[in-house]
Amino acid sequence: MSDTPLLEVRNLKVHFPLPGTLLKPKSGGSVKAVDGVSFHLNRGETLGLVGESGCGKSTTGMAVLRMTPVTAGEIHLEGNNITDLKGRSLRTLRRKMQMIYQDPFGALDPRMRVLDIIGEPLKVHNLVSGRKAYRAEVMRLMELVGLLPGMAERYPHEFSGGQRQRIGIARALAARPEVIICDEPVSALDVSIQAQIINLLKDLQEELGLTYLFVAHDLAVVRHICDRVMVMYLGHVVEVADSEELYTNPQHPYTQALLSAIPIPDPRAESRREVDPSIEGEVPSPVNPPSGCPFHPRCKHAMETCRTVAPELKDTTQGHAVSCHLYEPTSAAMPQIRVASMA
């Protein structure tokens, strides 16, 4: 059992149907938000899910949480298939997966005191008995995330963004989850506060052995917290690698473009960097994704094959997988693939 990953996702697809016309209600097509995503997450590690808006990273997180309907594929938690759980067993499952949200202002019920917000998972899953134990547990959680116990009776609007995010983290920890899904947990915060929260998440992971699925658009933030990084584009995984490997040796042209687009706070280094020309153009609509490789309309290396054949995610080196025709084992294989697909 020990080598079974904590979370495993196989060929996940999430398609959202578009409203059709009155006469043909099913004719609207669908938004292919997530289109065949597979990955695993080991206990105690942090996997970064990176990409631009509309790449399906948040939807993947939601599907793992079972908060959005899964069109196809399987999700396994601790070796159990959780894709089709319903009703009570789904609610029990929810304790094991908690979420930290992007918006520190909207994620907390404005009518509840901090005490009740943090303690809600305890009540929902009957994790403590008695008022005293409840209060003590909430106080312990508040201390854990760096909030003063005296703040328990206050309401969310009395806190700054960073403090609210701490409240949200304490709430996620309350259920003692197996996996925490962090959906852009710091992107709404100021830089100086961002660093506080990133450090807090790292400390908590060390202390409590937490496992994070870290959804973010900011590759710089991801670098500071993730062990492995998965880059998504238009519902597909384009590259997965260990963090260090991905940043020093990005292989997919999209990853390279993404990295080159992020400014570095260093004017000398900046003056030496060039903006990658392949970032021209914009992400195509997921309703009508391009044929072949989804990135080919923006890719400077695009070849004939890229327009017709979708590349598969294949290991180039141990633990580094890329979905790109440039890295096919032999270029001679390409025409064969093309023939096969046309047949």
Binding site: V191, S192, A195, Q196, I198, N199, R223, H224, E244
Partner: peptide, 21 residues
């Protein structure tokens, strides 16, 4: 110092500005 950077060491610890604005 508190800015996450692409050219940082892997999983380098950030140095936040403590306290609130």
């Amino acid at each position: 110092a508190s800015m996450p950077r692409l050219d940082a060491e892997e999983k380098a610890r950030l140095k936040p500005i403590e306290g609130q604005p």
